[in-house]
Amino acid sequence: MTAARAMIKEPFTAGPEQTIGDVIKIFTDKKVRAVPVVDGNGMLLGLITLRIILKNVLPISATMEHGLESLDFLADTTEGAAKKLGKILDKPVADLMDENCVCASTDTSKWEAIRLMVKSNTILPVIDKKTRELKGVMTAQSTLTELDQTMKEIQAEKAAQGEDTA
C-alpha cells in the first residue's frame, strides 16, 4: 500500500509569486495550516505553513541557530510583532517557503509516509519521483480517515467470515 492511496488528490496550492497575505487568506478561508507551492506546470517548489509565517514575525536573533532562548524580557511587544507581520504580508511566497520540505513520492510505502509526516509535523506533499510534479498531499486527517476505513473493512470481512463458518 503506498502514499498515493491516502492522499488528497486535488489539494489547495499557492503560486510562488502570490503574496504571504494571499496565503494567509487561503489558510483562513479553507481552514488549512499548510499548502504546497507549485509553479505553472504543477511542479512542487516548496511548502508554506502557518508556522513559517509565525516564525518570520519573531526577531531573527530568536529563531537563528544558537540564538536567544527566551524573549521573556521583551515587554509589551504586540505592536512590534504586528508591524513585522505587516512587513511580510506583501512578500512573495517564494521568499519564505521551505524549499527543502519533507515530501513523499507516489510509491513511498504507507509506514514511511506516516513516519515522514510525524517527523516533519506538517502536511506531506506527494510528488512524482522523476518530474517532481505534485500529485497530492497527505494530511494527518486524510491518513486517519483512510486507516479508519481500512480497519472497518477488515472488521466487516472478519464478521462475514464468522457468519460463513457459523
Binding site: 526577531p59 536573533s61 537563528m64 544558537h66 540564538g67 512590534g80
Partner: peptide, 14 residues
Amino acid sequence: VMLIVPVTLLLTEQ
C-alpha cells in the same frame, strides 16, 4: 561572543 552577539542583533534590530 556566542552569548553577546544574539542580544546585540536583537538590540540593533529594535
